[in-house]
């Protein structure tokens, strides 16, 4: 279809532009690196202080699931809706469409609250996955097959990962506070992957970096963050 082609070409053009405009950031500005190039069609991002309170969010979501608690949902909405909207806009979703999609994401939160498993993911992570999948459904031709936890073909876990699993909400909090401490070139990799829809090969092309450099930066970033959730007392 011509319109799709146009869309694709436009995306490529944007990628090239972004590549040329990729800023060199002074060291120590991890937060600024995460906020993206100044050209991004969004608010000039200052990254907010993390306000995750995993227990509180999980309790609110549980109240939504168990009691259809509207006040609890409204509290979750007020916290997460502006973040979901920010995420969608970052990913080059038209603001009007972003507001529409954000509403669908938050309605899904309400409807699927009983499917939330606090041992697998923190609340922000769970909402992130809903927003991610909803955006892919809408914005891309690509489908995204999901892992189905009830798939009989699933190779079972050898044993419950007791220590790791219980702390799923805790990870989020630790990662959120550690992200700001990443070296800028590592934080940039995560921003491009999670908030700009770039695969690691896209990132290499965009920044004119060898694939090996992109891989090692990603792995270093993950390694640093991993140490945050593995050294749980």
């Amino acid at each position: 279809m011509p319109s799709d082609m146009q869309h694709v070409n436009q995306r490529h053009a944007e990628r090239r532009l972004a590549g040329e405009g990729a800023p060199r950031l002074p060291a120590g500005l991890a937060a600024a690196a995460l906020a993206g190039p100044a050209k991004a069609p969004v608010e000039t991002g200052v990254w907010a202080e993390s306000t995750i309170d995993p227990d509180r969010f999980a309790a609110l979501l549980k109240a939504v699931a168990a009691k259809r608690d509207r006040a609890a949902f409204a509290t979750l909405f007020d916290h997460f809706a502006p973040r979901v909207k920010a995420y969608l806009i970052r990913l080059r979703t038209e603001p009007a469409v972003a507001e529409e999609l954000m509403q669908e994401v938050m309605l899904t939160v309400w409807r699927r609250a009983d499917g939330y498993d606090p041992t697998r993911a923190g609340v922000a992570t769970w909402i992130f996955t809903i927003a991610r999948n909803r955006r892919i459904d809408t914005a891309r031709r690509d489908r995204r097959p999901e892992l189905d936890p009830s798939d009989p073909a699933l190779t079972p876990e050898p044993s419950p990962l007791a220590d790791a699993v219980v702390l799923a909400g805790e990870w989020e909090q630790r990662i959120a506070s550690a992200i700001g401490e990443l070296p800028p070139e590592q934080a940039q990799m995560l921003r491009l992957a999670y908030f700009e829809d770039r695969s690691h090969s896209d990132i290499a092309a965009l920044l004119h970096l060898p694939m090996g450099t992109v891989k090692s930066r990603l792995r270093l970033a993950i390694g640093r963050l991993r140490s945050k959730f593995e050294n749980v007392p």
């Binding site: 907010a48 993390s50 995750i52 973040r83 970052r90 992570t125 909402i127 999670y194 908030f195």
Partner: peptide, 8 residues
Amino acid sequence: GALLEVAS
């Protein structure tokens, strides 16, 4: 999830 949390 963490990036969503710290996004302005």
